[in-house]
Write a protein that binds this DNA or RNA. Structure first.
Length: 635
DNA sequence: GGGCGCTGTCATCTG
DNA sequence: CTCAGATGACAGCGC
């Protein structure tokens, strides 16, 4: 309270008196009662303008520089910083354009009466102090925030006056540059607040800042036919180029409004680093988040004269804002359409169907499944190759013939398998395949191709005596022929040996056919087993793939849910901040804008415009619904 | 007795 | 063309 009094009683009142002498009414009420910059009203014409523009920067103070650690303003600073960090966390700048520049044009009656301003300090300095004191108390009740006194507004003095305030914060670099300029201005103001030179410098600094903002500012057309003091004319001349800078859409928007209001407020700027100002007042150190600047803005239409009452610490209110309960449905016009697109893409409606526990369980199961699959070691690729027609020699006992990984490894050896063919012996078959033991053989090592016939014959004879197991049809047929080979041996012997067998035994045509059929059926049986095993393995592999994809899908759904929640929270914060910002803006009568009637519309280029809620909301929601409909049709 | 899975067999295709 | 392997289809068998 004391610090407010310290700076207000001297700087504010004196400067207010100075402005009142040139026809500018400074309204300190708003400034003192909240987080606003002083409101300036011109009363020299049929219209007046309210301008709340702290041209100084609070970032320096916000950074904690030159502020005592125990300074109560730091609490507000840190709160503001936290809120700004939250705003930054809302999302990418593209989706959450946070550049906010505000322009409010309105009509003020000619009589110069106090329009919507409960405290007119333009006349009586004594009243000013009283009012200032009263509002200091109010300010303290609001949390001790004290916006810097910035009355660097340009105002028309006579005729239909127009004043436009722009709330903006440029990028860091721009801010730094502007800060320096503003510091100079503030210093000048502190030393010679009542001199015209200081006013000129002040306006020039504003002009410099405005030039930085030309690229993104949306200003109403200049005022024409006004009689301005030289200093104001010089100042206004700085903004002649604004006419070309005004987007057509703003004009359209203003035309749609009963009381044309156009804002171009940079919320992003509010997130920029804290500055080092704060050398002027401790009060300013608490609310450095928004650099509120007013620039001269002429407007040809007196009815569109503007007044801007912008808070220097809009976001600071969000923390205690009671509007946090804003429903998402109310935020339609606040968000960029891209945000809605993103929300639609997230398909929030399906989020509720996901059971986190179920997802966790699935994921756990899938992890185990993956481990099992990784150990399977099975391959869908068949190791069979023409050169390994006798793959069964190398197969594992009890395993599917010609299919195990060991078969692959053995087959790959090439020379080893070839040697095995040359040294072919039915005992190898007995060890490796034919797990049903239909064909029994005995060991016959080191048999050569020349002696294989005798060896096989001996082994078959001994096996038949040792294992009188159940024989297959082909086995019985082979035995019926009186051949010294089992069906198993016939099936698995190399083709060369088989042909030699057919020639050496003086078999008839039917017997040869029988042996060929036996061999063919035996090989086909093994092939069928391998085929079925491969098929089963393929099915298992596909099941594993399905489960893995299910786990991936669950993870993506969870991610989507988290993202949607974060986006929803960001949207809610944006809604809150938008309402806070709107509540701090002033209409032509100096009344705060009703957040229920206006919205902040984020355009694609990052600008934030104040628009009537109904139109914007309906259009945005319609677009959102359209997108959602398209998405529903896709599947 | 029917369903189901396993197995063997045949026919066919491919390399 | 032959051979070996792969595979779908079918049938038999046992549970």
């Amino acid at each position: 309270m004391h610090h407010m009094k310290k700076y207000f009683t001297e700087g504010l009142i004196q400067f207010t008196i100075l402005l009142s002498l040139i026809g500018v009414r400074v309204d300190v009420d708003t400034y003192l009662s909240g987080y606003f910059s002083p409101l300036i009203e011109t009363d020299g014409g049929p219209s007046s303008a309210f301008i709340q523009t702290p041209f100084h920067h609070y970032r320096d103070t916000a950074a904690g520089h030159q502020v005592h650690p125990k300074c109560p303003e730091l609490d507000y600073f840190f709160t503001s910083r936290r809120l700004l960090n939250e705003v930054r966390a809302l999302g990418s700048p593209a989706r959450f354009p946070t550049r906010v520049s505000a322009w409010l044009v309105h009509l003020v009656p000619d009589d110069g009466s106090d329009v919507g301003e409960p405290h007119d300090l333009s006349g009586d300095p004594g009243d000013e102090e009283v009012n200032a004191e009263n509002h200091r108390e109010e300010d303290d009740r609001r949390g001790g925030d004290g916006c810097g006194l910035s009355v660097s507004q340009d105002c028309t003095v006579s005729g239909p006056c127009c004043a436009a305030g722009e709330l903006s914060k440029e990028e860091t670099l721009l801010n730094q540059v502007n800060e320096e300029e503003e510091e100079e201005v503030k210093d000048e103001r502190g030393q010679e607040e009542t001199s015209p030179a200081s006013l000129n410098q002040l306006t020039q600094s504003l002009a410099l800042e405005q030039e930085d903002l030309l690229g993104s500012s949306t200003l109403p057309p200049p005022l024409s036919g006004l009689e301005l003091p030289p200093q104001w004319q010089d100042f206004i001349s700085e903004f002649d180029d604004f006419d070309s800078m005004v987007p057509q859409r703003i004009s359209d928007l203003e035309a749609e409004l009963p009381n044309p209001i156009s804002y171009d407020v940079s919320l992003q700027d509010a997130m920029v680093n804290g500055g080092d100002s704060a050398n002027s007042r401790p009060a300013s150190s608490r609310t450095p988040l928004f650099r509120l600047e007013s620039t001269n803005s002429s407007h040809s239409d007196p009815s569109q004269n503007s007044a801007v009452a912008l808070p220097s610490s809009l976001f600071s209110l969000s923390g205690n804002s009671s509007r946090n309960e804003t429903s998402p449905s109310q935020m339609g016009g606040y968000l960029d359409e891209a945000v809605f697109d993103h929300i639609n893409m997230l398909d929030l409606g399906n989020l509720g169907t996901i059971d986190p526990q179920m997802l966790d369980g699935i994921q756990g199961d899938m992890d185990a499944q993956w481990l099992e699959d990784s150990d399977s070691g099975l391959s869908l690729e068949s190791p069979a190759s023409p050169s390994t027609s006798s793959d069964s020699f190398c197969e594992d006992e009890g395993g599917a013939t010609g299919y195990s990984s060991e078969v692959e490894s053995l087959s790959s050896k090439g020379g080893a398998c070839a040697a095995a063919y040359r040294d072919w012996s039915p005992m190898n078959l007995m060890e490796n395949i034919w797990h049903n033991h239909t064909y029994s053989t005995s060991q016959a090592e080191n048999s050569t191709s020349s002696s294989w016939f005798t060896t096989i014959k001996q082994e078959v004879m001994s096996d038949d005596e040792a294992e009188p197991e159940e024989m297959s049809r082909d086995e019985r047929r082979v035995q019926a022929l009186g051949l010294p080979f089992s069906a198993f041996q016939i099936v698995n012997m190399p083709v060369e040996n088989f042909l030699e067998l057919l020639d050496s035994q003086n078999l008839s045509g039917s017997e040869v056919t029988l042996l060929r059929d036996v061999r063919r059926r035996g090989k086909n049986k093994l092939a069928a087993q391998n085929c079925r095993k491969r098929k089963l393995d393929a099915i298992l592999s596909l099941q594993g793939d399905v489960e893995g994809l299910s786990v991936q899908r669950d993870a993506l759904l969870r991610q989507r849910s988290h993202t949607a929640k974060a986006l929803s929270a960001a949207a809610e914060r944006f809604e809150t901040l938008s309402r806070t910002l709107l509540s701090q803006l002033r209409d032509e009568y100096g009344h705060p804008l009703n957040p229920e009637h206006y919205t902040l519309h984020c355009s694609a280029n990052g600008r934030v415009m104040v628009q009537p809620r109904t139109n914007t909301t309906s259009r945005t929601m319609t677009s959102s619904k359209t997108v959602k409909r398209k998405k529903d049709k896709k599947p």
